[in-house]
């Protein structure tokens, strides 16, 4: 919480925020701290994502103080950011939960960075955005266990994902500075949400294209990749011919040159 406050205070001087934003944020900070305290003390069952009116209200306040500058006070979007009607809870959970939002700086694409909000705050904002218009919901836990069919998941991954994310999920370059990020270590829930919502330049893979069970299979495949080291030894980032070729050029040819020099050199 203190981190968000300091960030906002710095930005307040640049004039990009509403003059009352700091005041609002302090208010929100007090309320959320109190609210979080109340939630933690009251019951452990608060973990479940049951949406309550309190959550929505809390989310609205968080939204107003952290997101409204770009997305508009009524979520209608501005020149700096798109409208969020119908993006659903899944989109908010992905963008905020991976640290992509709030945006650090405008650029080819939003970078992943340390997460700025607690899960409860993220859930509250997700609940608020989802309450305005229907959209993809946060996926149910049963698809996120990584216990599906890795073989089928691998086939689906090769057809739908591998061209951008690399067959081993190592990521890859797109046009004009954009890139598909590495999928190593990404939470299953975020993988699922990315497929459903199509963040930034990633296309949407809705549940009618790739069914929830098939998405679970893809997550299983990614988990398999994380759990099983490359059978061939060093995979050099799984980047394929570029990194492998560079390695051979430098170390393979280097060794050959060194041996040749040694053979031809005069003995002392």
């Amino acid at each position: 919480m203190s981190r968000t406050t300091s960030t906002t205070a710095k930005r307040g001087n640049s004039g990009r925020r509403h003059p009352l934003a700091s005041v609002a944020l302090i208010l929100v900070g007090l309320i959320t701290t109190g609210g979080a305290y109340a939630m933690f003390t009251s019951t452990a069952a608060a973990e479940t994502t049951a949406v309550t009116q309190t959550m929505i209200e809390e989310g609205e306040k968080l939204f107003a103080s952290n997101c409204a500058t770009c997305h508009g006070l009524d979520v209608q979007g501005t020149e700096a950011g798109p409208s969020l009607y119908g993006v659903g809870a899944a989109s908010v959970d992905f963008q905020v939960g991976t640290g992509r939002m709030p945006l650090a700086a405008s650029g080819p694409q939003a970078e992943q960075k340390p997460v700025q909000f607690t899960q409860d705050q993220t859930d509250a904002m997700a609940a608020y955005v989802a309450s305005l218009a229907p959209g993809p919901a946060i996926p149910s836990d049963e698809y996120l266990q990584g216990d599906g069919d890795a073989t089928l998941g691998a086939e689906l991954f090769r057809i739908n994902c591998a061209m951008c994310h690399n067959v081993a999920g190592a990521g890859g370059a797109l046009t004009e500075g954009k890139y598909a990020p590495s999928l190593d270590g990404v939470e299953p829930v975020h993988v699922y949400e990315a497929m459903v919502t199509g963040p930034q330049n990633m296309p949407v893979f809705n549940d009618l294209n790739i069914s929830p069970q098939e998405k679970a299979d893809i997550i299983t495949y990614l988990k398999y990749l994380e759990d099983n080291p490359s059978p061939g030894g060093f995979d050099l980032g799984s980047l394929g011919p570029v990194s492998e070729g560079l390695f051979v050029w430098i170390f393979g040819l280097g060794a050959i040159v060194a041996v040749t020099v040694w053979i031809a050199a005069k003995s002392n």
Partner: peptide, 19 residues
Amino acid sequence: DPTGTPILASEVTLGSVYH
């Protein structure tokens, strides 16, 4: 691809890509 099941126009939502 790969299941060979036909695609309803209504299933192709905005921003979707189908192989």
